[in-house]
Amino acid sequence: MTRTRIHNLSMSLDGFATGVGQAPDAPFGHAGHRLHEWMIATRFGAPIVGREGGTAGVDNAFAQQHEPGIGAEIMGAGKFGPPGWQDDADWRGWWGPNPPFHTPTFVLTHRPRSPIEMAGGTTFHFLDASPAEALDVAREAAAGQDVRIGGGPTVARDFIAAGLVDHVHLVQVPIVLGRGVRLWDGLEALEADYDIEAVSTPSGVTHLTFTRS
């Protein structure tokens, strides 16, 4: 059965999963890469930023679960590009000609455009749809594999609030951002629907996994 999964969604101690001031040269706004330094240091994450090597410990074990069994991804407009990308006909995402998704990828936006086929198996499709409607489309495209909700935090929160997510992997990073977009708002009593495990690692982060009861 197709599951809906969230992986490697990093947040600060005060619950922010992205900062303010998102721009073409600042995908996470004032947060920079501080939320993701734990992942960049791993064998899974190092190639994403053009590095070699990386650690092979617990952080890497969690990070690499991002990919196996995924047949489609859903992401929000803010993950695909900075404010105003809909007005730039040449904008094709942050990731260059070969994005790291390698599946059909559905971008939620109130201003859909024609699909963009990229190298490596990624095709971006643009939907103006509710979470449930988008998930139906993505499940069909996933052809029996799982669907990943790729973020940002607003999209993750909307899908969790709608009861559509089976597995959530969050990473609490020991920084305080003070401002940005919070994940937890409106998710009161989330713990009642999931079995929760927490694992702290030498890097200082805590991996929180929520598996639907």
Rank of each mutant, 00 (worst) to 15 (best):
G57T: 08
T154R: 07
G53W: 13
D195C: 03
V171G: 06
G151I: 07
V137M: 10
F62I: 07
V107A: 06
P115Y: 01
T123L: 04
L208H: 15
T18L: 11
Q145G: 02
T209R: 15
R139P: 00
G93P: 15
T123S: 13
G180T: 01
L183F: 15
H7P: 00
A17P: 00
L13F: 06
G69L: 12
T103N: 11
D59N: 11
T122L: 09
Q172E: 15
V171E: 09
Q172K: 13
S10M: 07
S130H: 10
V107E: 04
A156E: 01
S200V: 00
W184F: 14
H33D: 14
D185T: 14
A61L: 08
T42S: 12
I160F: 03
G50Q: 08
A31L: 05
V176P: 00
G152M: 06
M118S: 06
G19F: 09
H207R: 04
P202M: 03
I48L: 15
G54V: 08
A138Y: 07
V137K: 14
E140V: 12
F159W: 05
W38Y: 13
L208N: 02
W94G: 11
S114Y: 00
T123K: 08
A23Y: 05
S114L: 08
D193V: 02
R113G: 10
D146W: 07
A138S: 05
A23T: 07
